[in-house]
Amino acid sequence: MSDAVNVYDLGDIAMILGTANCAPVSCSDGHRIIGNHLDLDVSEILAVAQHIPLCLRGDAHLAARRRIAEIISASSTQTRAVVEREITAMIADLLTPGHHDVMQEFVTPLVNKLIGETVGVPLHLSEDTLVSRLFSHTIGISKRKRMNTELRELRQAISAELPHLNDIEVGDRLALCILGSDAMRGTLARSLHTIFESGSSAPDDPALTETYSKTGVPFIDREALESVEIEGQERKAGTILRSRLEAFEHSDDPKVRNRFFGFGIHTCLGRTLALQVWRQIQKGLDEKNVAVSVTAFALRKDDTFHIPETFELEVHLA
């Protein structure tokens, strides 16, 4: 994918994601080729890829998207309850005076709770979970093996917890874990980081607080099925167009910024839940309003997600 064409123009990104002439790109071909070449068991990776809408085309894409939307919709009352019940208390804990690991204490447990409630299975994905690395083109062999094992264990856990589900329903729930984990953790953590960098948990700057300011999903790839004009240049059919969703981060308009959740039939299915989460977090941050300083922050080395590996905070009484 190194020969992908980066697209930063907001109008072109909207066009690419909104047209049927640009199709999703497989997330499993690389795993399959490497698995065959090295006689590696990547069966779980290949199986779950058949449930991930953004890796599927045509009717398969629409069907997977519809099934996953139904799971999210069916659990919306429960997830909303988690948002209202848990977040204020979790924020209050995070903002007690002292040193805090934001990923370990807040972001990862919250995302586990939300996705767990959505799929109907308690989730305990660790800080270094590999489930979302399925989209990576650069991870080595050990991590692929570990990912395959992690996916198998997660699939078995879903089957054990929800024995009435068929294979397709289990696969869809597994796909939701993959889609939600790093995307949500990255978006949440990076947006919290921009707030805490201001020195306060409740900065007086709507550009930081009204909605997410950063995304954990910096780009999305599409293949041009026909020749297409991008940023004034003709791109031939077969070109991989890399829409840099992170380009929306620079807008002061929250409505524009929220477009990093995608467009039309490619809008992130977790968008509504993510926005509920942000509103609840803001309530919690406003209530506490303490002085904070970010003592350590570093993004994980990752070719697909922007997600902190380290995010530590010192909280002081204001």
Binding site: I33, I34, H37, L38, L40, H137, T138, I139, G140, I141, S142, K143, K301, D303
Partner: peptide
């Protein structure tokens, strides 16, 4: 690239470490 994956697998297995393709 597939040869590189073979090299990575060999080194990872012998040394019990994890490597990424772009780093190598």
């Amino acid at each position: 690239s597939l040869h590189k994956m073979q090299i990575i697998m060999h080194i990872e297995e012998v040394l019990d470490i994890e490597l990424d393709i772009d780093d190598v």
